[in-house]
Design a protein around this nucleic acid. Structure first.
Lengths: 132, 132
DNA sequence: AGAAAAACCGATAGGCAATCGGTTTTTAGG
DNA sequence: CCTAAAAACCGATTGCCTATCGGTTTTTCT
C-alpha cells in the first residue's frame, strides 16, 4: 500500500481528532496552503476505499473516522513493504528486527525486552479475564 | 523509496548471484516471459541511481552487484515507510514492535528475546575484538 | 419547493516504473 | 587502425496512482 503526502496528513489529523467531515479537515489542513474542499473530499474518499477510514452520514455530510490506528497502520505498511523480501515461514517482525538491530544500542534492546514482558503480561491478563 | 516489481526481482537475483551483467539478468529473469534486454538495462540503471547497486566495467559490459544486503534494504524500506508516522525521539523498531506484537504468539516473543541476546553477545564480542 | 451544502463525476497534471526502438559509443579482433 | 558486434545511452510511450479542481447531480434543511 502506498500513501501520498496529503493522505498521510489527513490520517494523522483523524487520529488526533477522532471524527471530522471534509469541511473540518479542509479548514485545518489545506485552507491557508491553498487547496480546495474537493481535493480533501477525494482524498478522504481514496482513504475510505483503501479501507483506512470509516464514514457515516450525520446531518448532510459524511463524518470520517480512522479505521486503523497508527500502530496498526505502521504494521500494515511494514508488512506490505517487506512482504516481497520475506520467505515462506519467516516472520516480518523477526526480519525487521534482524534488519534494524544493527543500528540500535543496548538501551533500545532493554526497551524492547521490557515491551515484550509487558506484552506477555497483557496476554496472561487477558486469559484470566476470559476465564471469569 | 519505492521499488517496482521488476526492480525487486532483479535485487533478489543479485543477492543470490552476487554479480551479473544485464545480459545474464535478462536471460534468467525476463527472457521467456518476454522482456527485452533494454528493459533490464534501464532497471539496473534505476537501481544503480537509487544507490542500491554498484557497477564496474569488465570486458564490454557493466557488472552489477547489490550494494545493500537484504536486511539492510528491509531496514531502509521500513524507515522510509514509517518515517512520517514516527515522532522525534521515537524509534521505528520500537514502534514496529508495538504495531506488530498484537499478532504474535509466545513463541515469537521467545524468538525475539533470543535474537536480542544473540545481538548483545555479538556486541560484546566486537568490543573484545576491538581491544586486542 | 427552493436554496444551500455536499457528494459525485470527469478531466488534467505530475511523478515514477516498465517497456522498447533507435542511435551513439565502446570494445574486441583481424 | 579499422570495422563489426556488443553494450550503453537517449527518448518516447504506456500505465498507474496521487493531487487537484471545475462543473453537475443529489441530498438535506427550512
Amino acid at each position: 500500500m502506498i500513501l501520498g503526502e496529503l493522505e498521510k496528513r489527513v490520517l494523522q489529523y483523524l487520529w488526533e481528532t477522532l471524527e471530522a467531515d471534509a469541511k473540518q479537515v479542509h479548514e485545518t489542513l489545506t485552507k491557508r496552503q491553498g487547496g480546495t474542499l474537493n481535493t480533501i473530499q477525494s482524498t478522504l474518499d481514496r482513504l475510505f476505499k483503501k479501507d483506512l477510514l470509516t464514514r457515516q452520514k450525520q446531518g448532510h455530510a459524511y463524518y470520517y473516522r480512522a479505521k486503523v490506528g497508527r500502530e496498526e497502520l505502521i504494521a500494515q505498511l511494514i508488512q506490505s513493504v517487506t512482504g516481497d523480501f520475506i520467505s515462506e515461514g519467516e516472520d516480518s517482525l523477526i526480519a525487521a528486527f534482524s534488519s534494524i538491530s544493527a543500528g540500535l544500542d543496548d538501551e533500545k534492546f532493554s526497551q524492547l525486552e521490557t515491551l515484550i514482558q509487558r506484552q506477555r503480561q497483557r496476554r496472561s491478563q487477558e486469559d484470566t479475564d476470559a476465564n471469569e
